[in-house]
């Protein structure tokens, strides 16, 4: 390497040290633009707060109007078994029941499949296999729910009807909607659970292998329990997602509140009901208009509660490995 001696040669137009840059004191300068920008950015951040306040205010206000109406009785709202606004019957149980049925069905599909996928991806799959499988699962999560609804109605329901007989299975039924919803939330369960499994340190796995455990024993008896809080959080988020899911049930579960435990009968969920009522000609300040906000408030409280619970679980039971 040739020796580049450091040579500070003057450039052709060497500048005077004071030229160009203003020489001022160190005193604080006024920068009004900086403050304005910071104010604007704060407003952007605060819009999310406004959104929450808006949701709570809107749902709360219209629900208050609903419960204050002479036709509505708070106790009957929670215990009544019919929801027929036309004849002044406002019992939310049929709607909640249908929501629970579809969500449970979805979880029955999504929990075992999702956990198996998570274990496979985090413990077994080669890098190549992961590179193929994960994007496919992401595609599954990215398909719009209306497409899933279409699939439930035009593929899943006919399939159920051909297996169990058209007399057993209605054209609209909660089972079909629930199963397809399970596929929709499968990627959510698997990716969140996989994150939890991957967060378990290698040293723990090595300890198990060092004691002569098989890969399965390591995965199921060491890694899975260590990741349990993360997995529980994932499942709760998934339930919340299932409760709030709308289009699949609106298309495939049925249009009419119906208190039934038969998953092959039509029944309308909370979300399905909101969509059907607001999709029609809805006049403001009618009891119908107010009633969907009351249902919406219930939905909001349930999903918010589940999400907060999920985050609490992660925070409280997070294992600290260091």
């Amino acid at each position: 390497m040739p020796n580049h001696a450091i040579e500070i040669t003057s450039g052709p137009r060497l500048l005077d040290a004071t030229q160009g840059v203003a020489r001022t004191s160190l005193g604080r300068r006024r920068r009004p633009a900086e403050g304005l920008i910071q104010g604007f950015l704060f407003v952007c951040g605060a819009i999310s707060i406004l959104t929450t306040v808006g949701i709570v205010f809107v749902l709360g206000k219209e629900s208050l109007l609903f419960f204050a109406s002479p036709e509505v009785d708070l106790a009957r709202f929670f215990t009544g078994t019919t929801w027929q606004p036309a004849i002044g019957q406002f019992g939310i149980l049929p709607l909640i029941n249908a929501t629970l049925m579809t969500s449970m069905m979805a979880m029955v599909v999504a929990i075992p499949l999702g956990l198996c996928v998570a274990v496979y991806l985090s413990e077994y799959a080669s890098l190549r296999a992961r590179g193929i499988l994960k994007p496919i699962l992401e595609v599954l999560a990215g398909v719009p729910t209306v497409v899933y609804g279409y699939f439930a109605l035009s593929a899943m329901t006919p399939l159920l009807r051909s297996i169990l007989g058209p007399n057993t299975v209605d054209i609209y039924n909660t089972a079909s909607a629930g199963i397809v919803m399970g596929i929709l939330i499968l990627p959510l369960v698997s990716s969140m659970s996989e994150d939890a499994l991957s967060a378990v340190p290698r040293s723990l796995r090595e300890a198990a292998y060092g004691l002569g455990a098989t890969k399965l024993e390591t995965a199921l008896k060491v890694v899975l329990p260590a990741a349990l809080s993360g997995i529980a959080a994932a499942l709760i988020v998934a339930i919340s997602r299932a409760v709030g899911e709308t289009m699949i049930v609106a298309i495939a579960a049925g249009a009419g509140p119906n208190l039934t435990l038969n998953p092959f009968k039509a029944a309308e969920t909370m979300t399905g009901h909101i969509v059907r009522i607001s999709g029609g000609d809805l006049s403001y300040d009618s009891i119908d208009y107010n009633s969907i906000f009351a249902i919406g408030l219930m939905l909001f409280l349930i999903t918010l509660g589940l999400n907060v619970l999920s985050r609490q679980i992660v925070r409280r039971f997070r294992e600290v490995y260091d």
Partner: peptide
């Protein structure tokens, strides 16, 4: 920092 002089010259001088 509000430099209004000859930027090419400044860059050359600084690099030198």
């Amino acid at each position: 920092n509000g430099f209004r002089g000859d930027m090419d010259a400044l860059v050359e001088q600084s690099l030198r």
